[in-house]
Every structure is written in C-alpha cells, then in structure tokens.
Computed example of a mutant assay.
Amino acid sequence: MKNLNIAGALSRVVICVTLFFVITPLITVIWVSVFSNKIISFPPQGYGFDWYTNAWRLDNFREGFLLSFKVSLLATCIGMLVGVPAALAMVRGNFPGKAVIGMVLMSPMMIPGVVAGSALYVYFIQFEMLSNVQVAATLPGLVAAHSVLTIPWIVRLVTASLVMNGSHVEEAALNLGATPWTVIRRVTLPLARPGLVAGGLFSFIVSFTDLEKSIFLIGPGSTTLPIAIVNYLEWNLDPTVSAVATVQILIIGAALVLSDRYVKLSRTF
C-alpha cells in the first residue's frame, strides 16, 4: 500500500513538472505580447496592447493570416470530402488490400514535414515539366499540399468515432427496410458527428500552423502566417511576434477545446 502511495505521488510530480514545461512558454509569450518595450527585455517598462495593433497594420501579418485561413479552410473541406468516405470504407468495408490502403492514408503523419515539403516541391516541378501546368508556387498547389496533411487526421478521428459507435444501429436500420444511402445519411453520419467536427477542427489547426511544407510551396508576393512570423524575426526583436503568436494560441486553444468536447483526442493516439 505504501509503495502504491509513493508511485502515485511520483506520477503526480511528473505530471506537474511536465505541465509546467508545457504551459510556461505559452504564458511567457502571452505576457511578452503586452510589454511596452520596443526591444524585448526584462523587467518590462510598462504594459499595453500596441503590438496587437502594430501586427494588424503590417501587411505581411494581415495578408499571411488571411491566406493561412483560406488555405486551411479549403484544405479541410477537401480533406473531409476524401477522408470521410475513406474512413467509412476502412471501418465498415471488407476488401483486399485494406491494411495497405490504411497505411497509405496514414503515411503523411509519419513523414517529417521538411522531407514531405521538399518531396512535394520536386514532384510539382516534375509535373510542370511534363505537362506545362504550373503547380508549385500557386494557391492550388499549396491547398493540395495541405490537403495531403489534413486527410490522415480526418480519417483517424472519424474512424475512432465510427469504431466507438459500432454498427448495430446501422444493421437495425437496414433490417427495418432503409436503403444503404438512407442509413449513411440518417444514421451513420449523425452518429459520427463527433469525429466529423473534431476531425475538421483538428485538421484546420494542423494546416493553419504548418511551416515546413508551406515554406517550399509558397509563391512570390504571398506568405502564410507562420512564414511571416519567421521572416519578421529575422530583422526585428519587438513583441509584435508575441502578439501574433498569442492570437494563434487563442485560436488553436479554442479549436482544441471544441475538438476534445466531441472526441477525446487521447483516445486517437
């Protein structure tokens, strides 16, 4: 009994230390964003929200935010159109090569972002040489790359939702005379709604914060928000980046809370 108490105490200490190392950088970024200093230094000379206004005035941040939002929204929609039917087929279907297809769908999650971004860039260049159709450095090419990023997350979360619900209700609907399409539309998709919502939100987050793939595929005269942050840090040390990062933290945090409300993300890893 005493050993169990010691183990429990140690586990709580480890959890607290881990949370401290995870949360402290976020709190520090939010704190720095309200410094009045023109150069980040401690202690602060005062506090204010001028850096949030400054971030919105800068074209790179404003246009980067809008482009990231547009790309993430389009990539999430495409990911839903591909990922939801794929998840239905993987959970409810029984066909040759099912395991291989599942591995292919999940493979973008296993490849480092820099490797995937450079590979996509080379592929787009080769495609352009063969077809004379430019894909690299265009909005459609960037959306296509981000769609590859969103599909595995949607498949994973929708699959988790379908597995948890089982197929008993669908079988009952079929026995009562419902057509397969009616079952999908009136039974399967409503039951899988938690996974659909969580998959869409989490995919949007992953796409919105992506840097590794975007940096290879972005076109001249345009930039996503993560790239705008990196470019700004090259020549500036003021808290503007902290203000932008704080807005990102709030958006991502809200989306994660909504995702976890529908599907416990810990069950999908």
Rank of each mutant, 00 (worst) to 15 (best):
V104C: 04
L142A: 09
M90I: 13
W153M: 14
F95Y: 14
P140T: 12
S147N: 11
L130I: 12
V104H: 00
P96C: 05
Y123C: 10
A119F: 10
G97A: 08
A145T: 09
V133C: 09
I125P: 03
L139E: 14
Q126I: 10
V114K: 01
A145F: 10
F124C: 11
T138S: 14
P108D: 04
V148P: 05
V143Q: 09
M109E: 02
I111W: 05
Y121Q: 12
L105R: 02
G117R: 06
Y123H: 06
P140Y: 11
F127T: 14
I154G: 09
R92P: 03
Y121P: 01
A119N: 04
A116T: 03
S107K: 00
F127I: 10
A99P: 00
V143Y: 08
P152T: 07
S131H: 14
N94P: 00
A119W: 05
G97R: 08
A136W: 12
M103P: 00
A89H: 03
A144N: 05
T150A: 15
V133M: 14
M90T: 06
A119T: 14
M106H: 01
V148L: 15
V155D: 09
R92K: 11
V115F: 02
G117N: 06
L130F: 13
A137F: 15
L130E: 13
F95V: 09
V135M: 15
A137C: 09
V114P: 00
F127Y: 14
A136K: 13
V155M: 10
S118E: 03
G97S: 08
I125H: 06
L142W: 11
F127K: 11
F95M: 04
L139M: 14
Q126K: 14
L105D: 00
V135E: 06
V104D: 00
I101P: 02
I101L: 15
Y121A: 10
P152L: 01
V100C: 06
A136V: 13
Y123N: 10
V100G: 01
K98L: 04
A99Y: 03
A99F: 03
K98I: 06
I154E: 07
L105G: 00
Q134R: 15
V143W: 06
A137L: 13
N94L: 02
F95A: 08
A99R: 09
V115M: 06
H146I: 06
L105N: 01
A89T: 08
H146E: 13
F127W: 13
L88D: 01
Q126Y: 10
A116G: 05
G102Q: 02
I125W: 05
P108V: 04
A87I: 12
F124T: 11
A89P: 02
E128L: 06
M90G: 04
V135P: 07
T138Y: 13
G113W: 03
V135C: 12
Y121C: 04
Q134C: 04
L142G: 06
P108C: 03
P140V: 12
P140H: 13
I125M: 13
V122T: 13
V104N: 00
H146V: 07
V143S: 07
Q134I: 07
L149P: 05
L149K: 06
V155A: 01
P152R: 05
A87S: 15
V133S: 11
A145I: 11
G141Y: 09
T138G: 12
S107R: 00
A144E: 04
V133T: 14
L142V: 08
